[in-house]
């Protein structure tokens, strides 16, 4: 999966999780400070939702401190690549 494809799918999950408008701008640089309602509880929901969308499980300790959407995209690409190898 290309980076652009992963980002597009993450964006779709964010729109659903945070109830954003369909034209919401989500880039690699987007952080929790740019999105209404993105706190520690909804972050947990976002992680669960992306795990479901990508059919993978992310390492718990790496999911706490993601600085921005870009780091989430990279983590997902790694996880998906590992799942494919298995």
């Amino acid at each position: 999966m290309t980076e652009a494809e992963v980002l597009a799918r993450v964006r779709a999950v964010m729109i659903e999780t945070f109830r954003l408008t369909d034209d919401a701008v989500v880039t690699r640089a987007t952080t929790s400070l740019d999105v209404d309602g993105w706190d520690s509880l909804s972050h947990a929901l976002l992680i669960m939702n992306v795990e479901e969308a990508f059919g993978t499980e992310l390492p718990l300790e790496r999911t706490y401190e993601l600085a921005d959407v870009g780091e989430l995209v990279d983590l997902l690409r790694d996880a998906v690549a590992r799942t494919d190898v298995r």
């Binding site: 520690s40 509880l41 972050h43 947990a44 992680i47 718990l60 999911t63 706490y64």
Partner: peptide
Amino acid sequence: PFEWVMRP
């Protein structure tokens, strides 16, 4: 507590 928030 931190793990619980992510996996309640």
